[in-house]
Design a protein around this nucleic acid. Structure first.
Length: 427
DNA sequence: TCTGGGGTCCTAGGACCC
DNA sequence: TCTGGGGTCCTAGGACCC
């Protein structure tokens, strides 16, 4: 019995989330900006139709935006994460095997649901999410992940499929014709570099790639691309990962809202990002064995003196205690810091991560201190979960945080903050 | 003036060992 | 004059994803 997977992907996810609570935005061109209101990271269909490209800096299109009445929002991750959780919970009810692949898409294993008719089942998913969350989604169904991604794209672009494209419904000729029309860059795992390379050797369409010699592909690219070719031929190489594996590295970094010169302010940012990284570390019940910090100026300001450097500090003992991780990060920062530069960004990374249960006890373990640390971190996490991130934090993170990013166009946290819940009035 | 953040995997090449 | 070969580990860098 061949495997069948569904890939469910929300349409223009961030832009659609903004519309759910603000229906006057329906039909209007709308973009969502990255942190610091820097680049466009999501666009409504109307904005795409105006030629606004993914990732373009906002300041470059502000004039165009004004002329066409494009509405821009700062990212509102609290809202998007909550909407995502709702979508994923609904989809989980359609199959016992789900892989949440990203904030706006998931795979479902459809084994056992053959009698429902996969295409019809896909339509049921769409209407449930539209009705209960208010978001539009499209569904691709196929024997491999790569094919499911591909037909999901087809479902989005070709109205005759009405939002659900089932690979199994297509004849060999139809598949051949379809793949012949799609550029190779549409394939999951083929980015712009590989796409240029493929074109050079005469592989222009998805069909060309599917028919390419796996051996040659492996030689010219890598085993990853070879698997992609196999997957395009219906041979599964990528398994459904229902349990998200623990992260091997945890990062936290942000650009500043304005240039920062002083070591004190850089230290505040590093302490703040490290607290966030430590939170993520504890959430997956891990310990970090090393701390990495990097600082950099703004590479786009080519006339300014540039400095970009990072450094790793191995820890004597793996830990998840924010205080120890922050202390280590500040030591690294002091070594990295050079006065006189206009810093634009700092970042931290936790590496050499192990499961907390894997830690080897030593003769010199301070068991009392370790229990205290554990209890303290647990209490901090619970308070911040209940009352909001940053409710309780280290003084080292700073009180004013003048370096913080800009987010001047953020919509309210409609679903996660009591004070910002929308109010409905009966007239 | 203004250009995101967080991940994974693979490969090549050097160091080192026997 | 002639100067091995193979394995492992680590790191940096590149490519991809959303």
């Amino acid at each position: 019995m061949p495997r069948n997977l569904a890939l469910i992907d929300c349409n223009n996810f961030y832009a659609s989330c903004e519309r759910v609570f603000n229906p006057t935005l329906e039909g209007k061109p709308l973009v969502v900006l990255s942190n610091n209101d820097g680049c466009v990271v999501a666009r409504s269909q109307e904005a795409k139709d105006l030629g606004i490209k993914m990732g373009v800096p906002w300041f470059q299109i502000e004039g165009l935006a004004k002329r066409h009445g494009i509405i821009a929002f700062s990212s509102n991750y609290a809202l998007y994460a909550d909407m995502s959780n709702r979508v994923m919970a609904i989809l989980a009810s359609f199959s016992p095997s789900q892989e949440v692949y990203s904030i706006d898409e998931c795979f479902l294993d459809l084994a056992g649901f053959e009698r429902r008719g996969f295409t019809r089942y896909g339509q049921e998913m769409r209407s449930a999410i539209k009705r209960w969350v208010g978001l539009p989604v499209c569904v691709g169904i196929a024997p491999t992940k790569t094919l499911a991604k591909l037909v999901n794209h087809v479902a989005k672009k070709r109205p005759q499929f009405d939002g659900v494209c089932n690979y199994n419904d297509l004849s060999t000729d139809e598949i051949d014709a379809l793949m012949g029309e799609l550029p190779v860059s549409e394939v999951w795992g083929v980015g712009c570099r590989h796409s240029a390379h493929l074109q050079q050797i005469g592989i222009l369409t998805v069909r060309d790639l599917r028919q390419a010699s796996p051996k040659m592909i492996r030689k010219q690219f890598s085993v990853v691309m070879e698997r992609t070719v196999a997957e395009l031929n219906g041979e599964p190489c990528l398994a459904l990962e229902e349990m998200a594996p623990a992260k091997k590295q945890i990062m936290s970094s942000r650009s500043f809202g304005r240039p920062v010169f002083a070591l004190d302010e850089l230290a505040e940012s590093v302490a703040s990002y490290m607290s966030r990284a430590a939170e993520k570390l504890r959430r997956q019940h891990s310990l970090a064995g090393a701390v990495q910090v990097y600082v950099r100026t703004n590479p786009f300001k080519e006339r300014d003196p540039q400095y970009s450097h990072g450094m790793i500090l191995p820890l004597a003992e793996p830990t998840d205690d924010t205080r120890r991780l922050v202390a280590a990060a500040i030591i690294v920062l002091r070594r990295l810091y050079r006065p006189g530069f206009a810093y634009a960004k700092t970042g931290v990374m936790l590496t050499e991560i192990i499961a907390a249960t894997q830690r080897m006890p030593t003769l010199f373990d301070d068991t009392v201190g370790m229990t205290r640390s554990k209890n303290l971190m647990h209490a901090v996490d619970r308070i911040n979960q209940a009352y909001g991130r940053g409710t309780i934090r280290l003084a080292a993170e700073g009180l004013d945080q003048h370096w913080k990013m800009r987010a001047g166009r953020r919509s309210p946290s409609f679903t996660t903050c009591l004070a910002e819940i929308p109010i409905a009035r009966a007239i």
